[in-house]
Design a binder for these strands. Structure first.
Length: 613
RNA sequence: GGUUCCGUAGCUCAGCUGGAUAGAGCAUCAGAUUUCUAAUCUGACGGUCACAGGUUCGAAUCCUGUCGGGAUCACCA
């Protein structure tokens, strides 16, 4: 199907004829020839020479000679050391382009039987989404898109952490000091409003803690427990303990959590109201990011799940019970610790819930492959979870992945919501769009457009800059995010790729209506054109690989590379003013194909293309 | 301390299923526009691929160790 694949198959056949050896095409190394050398593709002959019993140079000569004489697409060859550089006939290139342009949904993989669940974005409903969530959401969305393109059926889910002590802090602060304020009355977006109360709680709590530190009780505790810390260091460490055993506010927050668990109507009402505000706010942010979920799970519904699995695990002796009633799994045989799965008081821990949720999803959708897009601080947790599901012999257990990504930090250090030291998602989005607008106005290319069209274009450009900036890097890398740099619009950026697309669209507009006409007479194919076709040929394989490795950055780098090649082509070669009619037809067809693949690949990153910019 | 991820140009990153002289962008400097959108293109400057061994015809890539940084090792979520 793919022309490169076919070539590998041809070579494999040739080797078979020449030596009788069976070599799978997948084991051949065939790469585009480096530009310092003559040729289009290079076959590495070193590993093959032993089958021929000759030196690499001689082996390369034999293979090259055979290919040239027996296959039409090989026009010429040369040998340098163990490298066999093959030159393709012009017909090969024309045929390759023709084949691509004639393929429906080029790059789409064959249908895969396994359904995949991708979980991404696990927000807490006590504060707005921030930069860290953006990385998570963009990764999850992009991976979902890539998997779909590769041929999988994908179910996109999120789990919303809408219960727990942190949420109670926001609720309590609103109750005590909120004075009945609502998003409507304050004109503030719901998630931001609730986040303010979360910060306020922390402020009030700190004040309370400071006061307490002056009491005799505090001094006594310091004297008794401290070994070699200063007072300041000690109390910094003691903060959590203070919250749990001395703090008035802490006691109130914990009481609220208990009342929530007992479903006390007054608390439930407050919780539903404030959660509603936050979720509405999230919805707006998701929309701006251009993402959605097929199904949202809420922790308030799922936090009790998994207890029956604990029973099942005890029965199957996967778990064991301690004397105090707590239930554990022993993973020391695989070099991990013992891990608790149910508390002594019979309540769930985090992992209990995750066990239950996995089963629930399998029941809901039959997803046999599950991908969790979650920060790398939870690597250990997921290792344990996956191991448990394996030992419980779940049908999906062998296909669970944790797509872990590194933390996003600011140049000033880690983000801390409680201290208000964050980059909020909404603010960042607004900033990049504004930056795109400024830049576009300076250029002044958009004079004949309506205000609405312009706004849409600014948004596409700004979001492209942001998304590309985040997705082009390997997820595993910890990233230090400088808000100023992220809005760069030149160089290796989203807008650079959009610009290549826009240039093509501009050319096509000038031809009136897009028509792909016959170009089989085109004889003067040049290196820029070959290199574009060669990139385009790689696309289907790239999709499969990116899906296999859950690697959006591979797509991002491909799109950049293709755009770069097009810009180069554009500056060297005329399309509309081509030398001959055939050349013009060919270049229009090629340009249009490049535009399609640029749009298609950027779509996989959640980036949309403007028609002009 | 155990486990694990990361370390490539001043900065941000590609390349990692071993292949030719390690590539981009940003920044700095110098150029390109009567002709398809200059958010572009060309050139210059910039490297002990953290370090040391090993495997190999060949190592940024694989193995071992060391150093530096992050994460994690809760009856928290």
């Amino acid at each position: 199907m793919n022309t490169l694949h076919k070539l590998k198959k041809d070579i494999s056949e040739a080797i078979n004829v020449l030596t009788g050896q069976e070599i799978s095409p997948a084991n051949l190394t065939l790469t585009p020839t480096k530009k310092e050398f003559e040729g289009d593709y290079t076959l590495l002959v070193f590993p093959l020479s032993r089958y021929f019993g000759k030196r690499p140079e001689e082996t390369a000569e034999i293979i090259g000679d055979y290919l040239k004489n027996n296959y039409d697409i090989i026009d010429n060859y040369n040998v340098i050391k163990g490298f066999l550089n093959l030159g393709f006939s012009k017909d090969y290139w024309l045929y390759a382009l023709k084949e691509m342009t004639g393929t429906q949904d080029y790059g789409k993989g064959e249908h895969k039987s396994k359904k995949v669940m991708v979980e991404y974005s696990s927000p807490n409903t006590n504060k707005p989404l921030h930069l860290g969530h953006i990385r998570n959401i963009l990764l999850g969305w992009s991976v979902s898109q890539i998997l779909e393109k590769a041929g999988y059926e994908v179910v996109k889910t999120q789990i919303v952490n809408d219960r727990g002590i942190a949420i109670c802090k926001s609720m309590l602060a609103w109750q005590k000091w909120g004075d009945g304020v609502t998003p409507e009355s304050s004109g503030k977006k719901g998630d931001f409003l609730v986040g303010d109360f979360y910060v306020l709680f922390d402020k009030k709590f700190n004040e309370e803690y400071q006061e307490w530190q002056k009491t005799d009780e505090a001094k006594k505790i310091f004297e008794e427990n401290n070994e070699k810390l200063t007072e300041e260091q000690f109390f910094k460490k003691y903060k959590n303990e203070y919250f749990n055993s001395h703090s008035v506010l802490g006691a109130e927050a914990r009481e609220m959590l208990l009342n929530w668990e007992k479903k006390v109507p007054e608390v439930m009402k407050l919780w539903e109201m404030m959660n509603g505000w936050v979720l509405q706010g999230f919805e707006e942010t998701f929309e701006k990011l251009g993402v959605y979920f097929d199904k949202s799970y809420f922790e308030s519904n799922t936090y009790q799940l998994g207890k029956d699995i604990v029973d099942e695990g005890l029965e199957k002796s996967v778990f064991y019970k301690e004397n105090d009633g707590s239930v554990w799994i022993d993973l020391e045989d695989i070099n991990m610790d013992k891990k608790i799965v149910l508390r002594s008081d019979g309540t769930s821990v985090y992992i209990t819930q995750d066990m239950g949720t996995a089963d629930l999803r399998f029941k809901d959708f039959g997803t046999e492959k599950m991908i969790y897009v979650v920060g790398d601080e939870q690597e250990y947790h997921f290792k344990v979870l996956f191991e448990i599901m394996k030992r419980l012999k779940r049908p999906y257990a062998d296909d669970m992945y944790h797509l872990s990504y590194g933390m996003v930090e600011l140049p000033t250090g880690k983000m801390k919501s409680r201290e208000g030291k964050v980059v909020d998602a909404d603010d960042l989005i607004a900033e990049v769009i504004l930056e795109a607008e400024k830049s576009a106005k300076e250029r002044g290319e958009l004079e004949n457009t309506t205000e609405e069209e312009r706004a849409a274009i600014y948004e596409k450009i700004g979001m492209a800059a942001l998304k590309f900036f985040i997705l082009k890097v390997n997820p595993k890398r910890r990233m230090i995010f400088n808000p100023e740099e992220s809005v760069d619009l030149q160089g290796q950026t989203g807008p650079y790729i959009q610009n290549a697309y826009v240039r093509i669209k501009s050319i096509i507009r000038k031809t009136g209506k897009l028509e792909i006409k016959d170009f089989s007479d085109y004889a003067g194919i040049n290196e820029y054109e070959k290199s574009l076709i060669s990139s385009l040929s790689d696309y289907p394989e790239l999709i499969q690989q990116a899906a296999e490795e859950l690697e959006p950055s591979a797509i991002a780098n491909f799109a950049y590379d293709l755009a770069k090649k097009y810009h180069k082509f554009y500056s060297e070669v005329r399309v509309l003013g081509a030398e001959t009619e055939a050349a013009k037809n060919f270049r229009i067809a090629l340009s249009n194909m490049v535009a399609n693949i640029l749009r298609d690949s950027m779509e996989l990153l959640g980036i949309r293309m403007p028609e002009r910019m």
